[in-house]
Design a protein around this nucleic acid. Structure first.
Lengths: 354, 354
DNA sequence: ACCACCGATGATAGCGCTAACATCGCTTAA
DNA sequence: TTAAGCGATGTTAGCGCTATCATCGGTGGT
């Protein structure tokens, strides 16, 4: 009986006013697929046709629907990025690096911050994969097992950043936080310091902080430095917390010679506290930081610190992803150790001349 | 002749391995639409069915495809955000505010930075609208005409931030940059300063900077302050540029009494340069900043500055958007002036006691 | 006994785009 | 002359989901 039914009423869910590819096609006197090609693969369309299409696009103010395009093609030109927090400028630099490289390639960033929680990270991975990004970039190399599982099955390029590990999920761009912290303590030792305090970032759910602490401890053991309770403590990166940690270490160990802070903001906070107390840097106490942010260089006295490739981590991750997406078969090395550099400035006394 | 064709071979474009809603439906013994409802409107499904579905989702590791969902429903739970640069922490705070509010509501942020270029902003608006976001948030209140046109036609909530204007495109959250700068100069005047320099951020394509400069100029005129060429200049926000601007103003006008910097980073750079030259603050020169970032409070001497609602701008914008999306008919005021506050600290001399 | 009503579930038809294949006119080699 | 080859364009059929309407038992009022 179905062939006897009258024509169904036209039913549509379309948004009023939204210009679709079909409208452009009609205006240009071509088919929808030709419009699609003119926009996405201009070389595959005759020049004259291309101009017609572009004119129609302009005239109608057509903005392609990338949801539909992504669904049809399974390519979204979208990259998901998880960082611990955006309020730490080191991650802002990394994002800038990614933004510069991806922006030039017409990719969009979807950003989420985990608040230094691996549980939240795993939740975000699920939410982000739901957007079917072309790739995903994580901060750190430790993850909940469910996060790793989802990433493994998702079949998209994954880049872990900011640290090293033997067997990354997929690709990796970073440097050795453990070696970097060790190198700074070795440097301070070389400069004659023997009682060196350490202010760590909270190590829970943070492999970078944990590795820096481990590097410090290994150096303390190796160089036979003072190793007393309370010489190492933990503080979340703010100037105020750096100042507080400085006070605590100094009150527990008045004879401390230098304090190595796990980041420059803490170090600057410590140095400002020293100034408030009328202590001279480095005459009365040495201060070392980590990250080499802008402030470290401009600070008075300029901070001895560890320079890390913040921007380059982002830019390199982006380049690795683009290379992989352009040619999935490429066997470019999926791991980049970008290194670090101990920078001696005025906040610690110099190495003895030979 | 078509009815004589043999059955076509099965042709599919599906990604291998991707779990679809249909797979979950089969595993749970229900239809696809019921799975959709169990995930998106759990109340509309019987409890027993819901449990079945959730179990199947878990077992299969199903991650919904939001491209498809968004295409079908025209709701993406995605918000596009344009900022000038992510490396300025004031915008990081705003993003954190948005991230906190939107994260709790299960919305994702798509972030893009314009590099303080309105042309680039317009390009980004097009690229971002192509993702069909649920809303879009801009920084500043001046835009290229084509950007405004696209936004007007897009039919999504638009929030302009960080400044005020009489007729926003749609919604607006900010404060008066002109009034804030005026208020700081008025404050300095009240404290006895008469020769006040000003270091502006580059005003090109930046209405916030332009308005701060205008506020300074209006105050200079109104209070009959020194108004000499070279007393106001422009510098991009870095510590080094703040130091350079300090040097230039001081060499052109050795008798300058105070310098008002359009942001705290510049101010700190200026203050550090003063210290390098052995000048005392505020005895030899007053330093005022803008933004009240962390550094301003912890700096020695602590910086007199203008506190602006950085985090709250983001959080409020997010709340306004969610309110609008929940109820498009709501007539909640689409404009929020969040104000500012002049904060007197140690880097300028105090007001005379009455 | 009847029916309007309601909660739960399902069948169907798109959403706007692009992959895959088909077609068409023209050139070039045999 | 003819067929193979190629560039440009078109037709068709999804991509994976949800809006819409249909269906189907039970409930309760009359």
């Amino acid at each position: 009986m179905s062939e006897l039914l009258p024509p169904q009423p036209v039913r549509t869910r379309r948004q009023h006013g939204a210009v679709r590819i079909e409208d452009v096609a009609r205006a240009a006197g071509v088919s929808a697929i030709t419009v699609s090609r003119a926009l996405n693969k201009p070389d595959s369309v005759a020049e004259e046709t291309r101009k017609l299409v572009w004119a129609a696009v302009d005239e109608l103010g057509y903005i392609p629907n990338r949801l539909a395009g992504g669904l049809a093609s399974s390519r979204t030109r979208t990259v998901a990025v998880v960082i611990p927090t955006i309020t730490n400028s080191i991650f802002a630099d990394k994002i800038q690096g990614m933004s510069d490289v991806f922006g030039a390639a017409d990719y969009q960033l979807i950003l989420a911050n985990s608040g230094y929680s691996l549980g939240r990270e795993a939740d975000l991975v699920a939410a982000l994969l739901a957007q079917r990004p072309s790739a995903i970039v994580l901060t750190g190399v430790t993850h909940e097992e469910r996060a790793a599982r989802m990433l493994g099955r998702a079949g998209v390029p994954v880049v872990e950043t900011w640290n090293l590990r033997p067997s990354p999920i997929d690709m990796l761009v970073g440097f050795s936080n453990a070696e970097a912290a060790f190198a700074m303590v070795a440097h301070l030792h070389h400069c004659g310091y023997r009682r060196i305090g350490f202010v760590s970032a909270p190590v829970a759910d943070n492999d970078r902080a944990a590795d820096r602490l481990a590097g410090y401890r290994r150096a303390v053991a190796e160089f036979d430095l003072a190793d007393r309770p309370g010489l190492a403590r933990e503080a979340h990166f703010t100037l105020a917390n750096g100042a507080a940690a400085f006070r605590e270490i100094l009150s527990a160990h008045p004879d401390v010679e230098a304090i190595f802070f796990a980041n420059d903001v803490l170090a600057a906070g410590g140095a400002l506290e020293a100034r408030r107390r009328g202590m001279r840097i480095p005459a009365d106490i040495g201060i070392a930081g980590f990250d080499d942010v802008d402030l470290a260089q401009e600070f008075v006295p300029a901070l001895t610190t560890v320079r890390i490739p913040r921007y380059e981590i982002g830019a390199t991750a982006a380049r690795m992803i683009l290379a992989r997406l352009d040619d999935p078969e490429t066997d470019a090395p999926p791991v980049a150790d970008l290194g670090f550099e101990v920078v001696q400035r005025q906040s610690t006394r110099p190495a003895p001349s030979p």
